[in-house]
Computed example of a mutant assay.
Amino acid sequence: MDIFKWLFLVILVIAVLHFIHSVQTYTLERKICVDIPMKFAGRKLACEFTLMQAEQFLQGGNCSYQSDVSISNLRSDSWPHKLSELILKYGHQERRISLKEFCPSDHFNFSRSNVLYTFRVVTLFVDCSHGNFDCTSALCNNNTDCGNNAECSLILSGGIGVCFCKSEHIRINGRCYNANVPTGGTCVSNIQCRDRTYSGVCLESICTCGEGNHEIENGCFAGK
């Protein structure tokens, strides 16, 4: 009799641990290029994905500035999830984009072992504040919406795209400027003046040598 009691307790403990694991949720956090979560939201994968698939897609990228990306309330097992909203944040600004029309309206339930389950509906959050990229006002339909030195990448549903600065350019105050201005070149910010060693100061709209350095043939060198 005691053996059966212990066996029952062991089975009960295993069942409780399995239940806790099955209902436990996770938050996926990444620091990646902003175009990666945008592309994730614009693919059919956004209508049905697992935690592992999100982890594999939301990584890497080649860019100068990265954004903070997160998805909360994810299940750790093979339970499917569905994106319902994309939230873009830049400073105190916030832009919400509904993705409900992107997936079929009835794409909320699935069947497993003849049992009907409901998709976990989650939100993709992208904070561009640290990347010097105003993703809240950079939505576009074509290149003319993006201004000079920028291109519209149509990566969301319904023909919605995001403006990205062209190669060798950087976004400053909502506009794209040359990212590698040599000493003596025009500038609007210190971060542009990084083409020469010991450079890095935008003084009166001109890239100049940093304090304690001197200029020789459009280059900056240590010492006075």
Rank of each mutant, 00 (worst) to 15 (best):
4 F>A: 13
5 K>S: 12
5 K>M: 14
7 L>H: 08
7 L>Q: 10
11 I>V: 15
14 I>P: 00
17 L>M: 10
18 H>D: 14
19 F>I: 04
25 T>K: 13
25 T>S: 04
29 E>V: 11
33 C>V: 04
34 V>Q: 02
36 I>M: 06
39 K>E: 09
40 F>D: 03
42 G>Q: 06
44 K>C: 00
46 A>E: 06
50 T>E: 03
51 L>H: 06
51 L>V: 00
54 A>E: 03
56 Q>I: 07
59 Q>F: 01
59 Q>Y: 01
61 G>F: 02
61 G>M: 00
64 S>Y: 11
65 Y>R: 07
66 Q>G: 02
71 I>A: 04
72 S>H: 07
74 L>C: 05
75 R>M: 06
76 S>I: 10
79 W>Q: 11
81 H>R: 05
81 H>L: 05
82 K>R: 15
85 E>L: 15
86 L>W: 01
90 Y>W: 08
90 Y>V: 00
93 Q>P: 00
94 E>A: 05
96 R>I: 14
96 R>K: 15
96 R>G: 00
103 C>A: 05
105 S>E: 15
108 F>L: 15
109 N>M: 11
112 R>G: 03
115 V>S: 09
118 T>I: 03
119 F>A: 07
120 R>V: 02
122 V>E: 03
122 V>M: 10
124 L>K: 07
125 F>N: 09
126 V>A: 00
130 H>N: 06
135 C>D: 01
135 C>A: 12
138 A>G: 09
144 T>F: 02
144 T>E: 11
145 D>W: 15
149 N>D: 13
152 C>F: 09
152 C>T: 04
157 S>V: 10
157 S>M: 02
158 G>S: 09
158 G>K: 11
161 G>A: 10
166 K>T: 11
167 S>R: 10
167 S>H: 05
177 Y>S: 13
177 Y>V: 12
177 Y>E: 12
179 A>T: 09
181 V>L: 11
187 C>M: 10
188 V>M: 12
188 V>E: 13
195 D>K: 08
197 T>F: 13
200 G>A: 04
200 G>L: 01
200 G>H: 01
202 C>K: 15
207 C>I: 12
207 C>N: 10
207 C>F: 14
208 T>E: 12
209 C>S: 15
211 E>K: 08
212 G>I: 04
214 H>W: 12
217 E>V: 06
219 G>H: 04
221 F>N: 06
222 A>V: 07
224 K>M: 04
